[in-house]
């Protein structure tokens, strides 16, 4: 009796996670692609210095971060993937979304800048390991660099 209830709960969470998670991810990727196109004119590079410092009016540290959570369906899928080995696809898209969103937010926080140099992207897990029970399965991505105005 108790077991059948927990199976039903698992099934419901699995389906809700799949539907909401897929919609969420599609919407997020759509917004990421749109904003990336819009911000193409502001390059973010990892080089430490510019070729010349002529005409620089201002430079400032910019940093933005985002915390993204995995959905129930993907977590279940990831646990299965860990059993059989190989690349863990569900996590790859999660981390990709977090990193691109963080870089986009960093660019958006420097309106009018010519370029962002010395960009670093840092990733960390929040709370416990993402696939352990009861833990918040989420990653934080932080992007930071030096915005230069010309």
């Amino acid at each position: 009796m108790f077991d059948s209830i927990s199976i039903v709960i698992f099934g419901v969470l699995f389906i809700v996670g799949y539907l909401a998670g897929t919609i969420n991810e599609k919407r997020h990727y759509k917004s990421i692609k749109k904003r990336e196109e819009k911000l193409l004119s502001l390059p973010a590079i990892s080089m430490k210095r510019l070729e010349s410092s002529d005409g620089i009016t201002k430079s400032e540290l910019v940093s933005e971060s985002v915390v993204v959570s995995i959905d129930y369906f993907k977590r279940a899928l990831a646990i299965l993937k860990v059993l059989i080995g190989g690349s863990v696809g569900p996590y790859e898209s999660l981390i990709d979304r977090a990193r691109r969103e963080a870089v986009l937010r960093m660019k958006e926080s420097a309106p009018g800048a010519a370029i962002i140099i010395n960009v670093r992207v840092e990733t960390s897990t929040i709370g416990n390991a993402a696939n352990s029970k009861g833990a918040v399965g989420s990653v934080e991505a932080l992007a930071y660099g030096t915005a230069v105005w010309k």
Binding site: V16, A20, I70, V136, E140
Partner: peptide, 10 residues
């Protein structure tokens, strides 16, 4: 954690 997405509070 069930539906996925950004955790704004965090």
């Amino acid at each position: 954690n069930i539906v996925g997405g950004e955790l704004k509070g965090y």
